[in-house]
Amino acid sequence: MLESDLTPTAKSTGAGLYLEQKSKQSQEALKDIMFGSIAGTCGKFIEYPFDTVKVRLQSQPGFVNNGQLGLYYTGPLDCFRKSLASGGIRSLYRGVSAPVFGAAVETSSLFFSYRIAQEIICAVAYSSEIGKRKPDLPFTALLVCGAASGAITSVLLTPIELVKCQMQAGISGNSNTAFKSPISVIASIWKHDGPLGFWRGQLGTLIRETGGSAAWFGSYEGVGALLKRWYPVTTNEMLPSPRAPVWHQLIAGACAGVSYNFLFYPADTIKSRMQTVQIDIDTGSHSRTEMRMNFWSVGRKLWAEQGIFGMYRGCGITVARAAPSSAIIFAIFEWLRTTFA
Rank of each mutant, 00 (worst) to 15 (best):
G218V: 06
R243T: 07
G224P: 02
W216C: 06
S213M: 11
F198M: 08
K228A: 12
Q202V: 12
E237V: 05
L227G: 02
T235P: 04
L239F: 09
T205F: 10
S219Y: 05
T210A: 14
E221C: 05
N236M: 09
Y231W: 00
P232M: 06
F217Q: 09
E209R: 15
S241Y: 14
L203I: 12
F198A: 04
P240H: 09
G222W: 13
G204L: 08
L226Q: 03
T205D: 09
T205M: 14
W199S: 13
A225L: 00
T205G: 12
V233L: 00
R208L: 15
G197A: 01
L239D: 07
Y231D: 06
S219I: 01
F198Y: 11
R200I: 01
W199N: 10
S219K: 05
L239A: 10
S219L: 08
G212M: 10
R229N: 12
G218N: 05
G212A: 11
R208A: 15
R200G: 01
S219E: 05
W230A: 06
P242K: 00
F217S: 07
P232N: 01
G224T: 07
G211Y: 11
P232H: 01
E237N: 10
Y231C: 00
S241A: 15
G201D: 00
L203W: 07
E221N: 13
L203G: 01
S219M: 11
G222N: 07
S213H: 09
G201F: 02
K228H: 10
M238A: 14
T234P: 01
G201N: 02
P242W: 03
W230R: 06
T235Q: 13
G197L: 05
S213E: 08
W199F: 15
T205A: 15
P240V: 07
G212R: 08
Y220V: 03
S213W: 04
A244W: 06
S213G: 00
L226H: 00
L227Y: 03
R229C: 09
F198C: 02
R229E: 12
E221Y: 14
Q202P: 10
I207G: 04
P240M: 09
T205L: 11
I207Q: 01
